[in-house]
Design a binder for these strands. Structure first.
Lengths: 157, 157
DNA sequence: CTCATTATCTTAGTTGCTAAGATAATTTGT
DNA sequence: ACAAATTATCTTAGCAACTAAGATAATGAG
């Protein structure tokens, strides 16, 4: 069964490629974090803060799966590094809002530029239809991974 | 410029999707590690050992970027957990070869099955030609990421 | 056969995490 | 209105995994 074997090989190669591409992405983030003098967790949190607007400490904890104590440390470090600032919520003064500071655009965004440019360059050779296929694939991959994790959870110990 | 905007949106969506799919994959690994009672680093090392055959401690350190001291700890834990074994190299008795034990197939492989099945299921709906496109894309993504990291390294501090 | 080199392990100290409880603000019940 | 319960963050104590530097042991070179 030659054609069936080829297809199987293709699928195996895709799994490997997926892992390698994913791994490289993680390494890139780590390199950026190191360059900023912060750790990967802090950068991940900063990313959330920058994208999802000002966030409470609790929301950040929920988004990352860290404990409230860990988040206190994260915000302390981001504040000390000048990337974010605490701000008491005026309506509910128990809450701490974390806001991203302009240093993000100045110091952080440039470090993601090589990656962004590389991504755009890679994608430029694809037609709209092909891009749509890729997008669909990646979304399926994410959903499949999510479903697999649920199944893993229901597996006998 | 409607069509141009759409394409830009598509590319932005692809970047997001790439990160989300990658993130889900990482989470899956973490879930597997947790289920095995080991940490992600140890599982990553075990993966290397299982795939690349018996390996010296030093080779493992080089592959993962960990220090020799950290690797000693990793091997200690994997050995204690019954997943790997130390073995002195007969030719050069300074070296420690780390070998994967059968427990891997029995206990670990099953935990990756949900993911593997999900991957196969996701991919089954694609034609060979489409699979080839996806593979090419992922390999480009990996290479682009690698190149971007090199560029990052040569950026002014 | 001594000395430099190589490979791993050991030790001391750091970092970032969790769990549990402290503190402070808000909401609820009466 | 006010005591009690709840909610949100911070603090503290302890732990796990890491690095850096040096100890130990085997090998290779002159």
């Amino acid at each position: 069964m030659k054609s069936s074997k080829t297809r199987q090989d293709l699928i195996a190669a895709l799994n490997t490629a997926m892992r390698e591409a994913s791994g490289q992405g993680v390494l890139y983030s780590q390199a950026v974090a190191q360059r900023l003098g912060i750790n990967s967790t802090d950068l991940e949190c900063l990313d959330h803060i920058a994208l999802r607007g000002p966030l409470t400490a609790g929301a950040l904890a929920a988004a990352t799966g860290l404990t409230s104590g860990a988040i206190t440390g994260v915000i302390d470090r981001l504040e000390r590094a000048g990337f974010a600032a605490r701000e008491r919520d005026a309506n509910d003064r128990r809450k701490v809002l974390v806001r991203a500071l302009p240093a993000i655009e100045k110091k952080i965004a440039p470090l993601f530029e090589p990656m962004q440019k590389a991504a755009i360059a890679s994608l430029s050779s694809y037609s709209d239809k092909e891009l749509a296929l890729l997008l669909d694939f990646l979304q399926r991959a994410r959903d499949a991974s999510l479903a697999a994790m649920a199944e893993l959870g229901s597996l006998p110990a």
